[in-house]
Design a protein around this nucleic acid. Structure first.
Length: 232
DNA sequence: GCGACAG
DNA sequence: ATCTTGTCGC
């Protein structure tokens, strides 16, 4: 199965594929130190199949942006909760292939194993590129947890079916927590540690925050094309 | 059946 | 996710 073929899958087939992929997930300590960390995100106009994907490269732990890649692509796979990867991975992979150098680890906007079948977009992308990944989501998909204290870096484990699948992390006081979960080839503890080192005063960690800024700029620069309301 | 539901 | 101004709270 190739990402370019995802758009031909039915939701049931996509779920079947996730159940195959989950057998290859490896939640284990990193095997190499991190020097360069990447952040990936997607942007698009409502009702449009055009998607803007981008990956930002930053020095770790300095969080200095040292490079990026972006691509304008399209997708016909709809957004379906639990199947986000089938909609966004194809374009992200195009951006990934355009990078001159690959990061030692990639942070994606969404879940890692904090997913009903343990196949959030970060885990999915990590598996097909054989790269260490971390999922950093702005909202919860699955898992139960108690609200972490209102202090920076207060955290609370997320449980599902008897196992810990993620960590609700208070990245900024008075802000809702973010949901961290390992994607592939990294441990739960290291995932949280790395993300903490990527927080620079904002609720969102620098990798995905910078990636979001990048793809939004690419979308706006692409012109007022495909906007919801475009008079004239 | 009802409520939840990444981006 | 995107569309959007002001506004409440720390």
């Amino acid at each position: 199965m190739q990402p370019s073929d995802y758009e031909t899958l039915t939701p049931a087939q996509a779920i079947a594929y996730q159940n195959e992929l989950r057998l290859q997930i490896r939640i284990e300590p990193l095997d190499k130190p991190i020097h360069i960390i990447g952040g990936a995100d997607i942007s698009f106009n409502k009702y449009s199949e055009i998607v803007y994907a981008g990956i930002i490269l930053l020095k770790y732990p300095e969080m200095t942006v040292i490079g990026h890649s972006s691509v304008i692509s399209r997708t016909s796979f709809p957004y379906i909760s639990g199947l986000l990867a089938f909609r966004e991975v194809p374009a992200l992979l195009e951006a990934w292939n355009k990078l001159d150098i690959k990061p030692d680890l990639l942070v994606l906007d969404g879940q890692g194993i904090a997913h009903e079948r343990r196949l959030g977009i970060a885990t999915h992308f990590g598996l097909i590129t054989d790269t260490p990944t971390i999922g950093s989501a702005k909202s919860r998909l699955s898992g139960r947890y108690t609200e972490p204290d209102n202090e920076v870096f207060a955290q609370s484990p997320m449980y599902d079916k008897g196992e810990i699948i993620g960590t609700a992390l208070r990245s900024k006081k008075n802000c809702n927590p973010i949901y961290i979960s390992p994607g592939h080839r990294i441990s739960m503890e290291q995932s949280v540690e790395v993300i903490k080192n990527c927080i620079k005063g904002y609720r969102i960690p620098e990798p995905t925050r910078q990636a979001h800024i990048l793809v939004n700029k690419v979308r706006v620069d692409d012109g007022g094309k495909d906007t919801q309301l475009n008079l004239f």
